[in-house]
Computed example of a mutant assay.
Amino acid sequence: MTESLDPIRLACWRSYIESSQLLLTQLEDELRGSNELSFADYHVLVLLSEVPGQRLRMGELASRLIFSPSRLTYQISSMQRRGLVSRESCPEDRRGSEAVLTAAGLLALHEAAPHHLRSVRAHLMDDLDDAEVACLTRVFDRLGRKLRDLRDASSAPSKS
């Protein structure tokens, strides 16, 4: 049987889960209210805006978003219908496809970013001092590396 968490760690876990869900819900509600974008829409637009050519292979985008291929297909199809992205064949091999940021998608991002950043500041960053920001950054960077390594190891072909 798995050992349960001590009361301090259990309180930490529950506090993290509840506050992170509340934060993400608040940010999503405000994005939808001000710009009719979901949190996933916004994340896709940010990622595409930051890469050369404003395009990414679907597999790479799914990996960066931590989405399954089917979830990404659904997300991109929804955004494509609204003109925020297009889906094009990869210029290098024509077998895969890429999500490409459209002018309308870039405009939507530019319109949403100031509102979203105000929300992030109001609901998280402005309540933290510099030491807390540094601590959270260290903790989540370390956890992110560990979880990405675990994910990469579990998806790597086995060497039999």
Rank of each mutant, 00 (worst) to 15 (best):
R57I: 03
A40P: 00
G83W: 12
V139D: 01
I66G: 05
K146H: 07
A112G: 02
G53Y: 02
R142T: 15
L47G: 00
R148P: 00
S20V: 11
A104Y: 06
E18L: 07
A103F: 02
P114Y: 06
F140L: 11
R14M: 08
E92M: 07
I17R: 09
L37Y: 12
V120E: 09
E30W: 12
A62H: 01
R32V: 08
A112L: 04
S70T: 13
Q26D: 08
T25I: 01
V100Y: 03
E60M: 06
L150E: 09
V133M: 05
S119H: 03
L48G: 03
T25K: 08
A122C: 01
R95C: 01
D149V: 06
V100M: 14
A62T: 04
R95Q: 04
E3W: 12
S34T: 13
P91H: 09
L147P: 00
R142C: 08
L23I: 07
L31Y: 10
V46I: 15
P69H: 03
P157S: 10
A112E: 05
Q26H: 12
P52R: 14
R82Q: 03
I8A: 14
L128V: 09
S4W: 04
K146D: 11
C90G: 07
A99Y: 02
T2C: 02
G105D: 04
S158M: 04
L61N: 08
R138K: 09
L27V: 08
A99G: 15
S86D: 11
A103N: 05
L56D: 10
Y16A: 09
L5C: 05
G53I: 10
L10H: 15
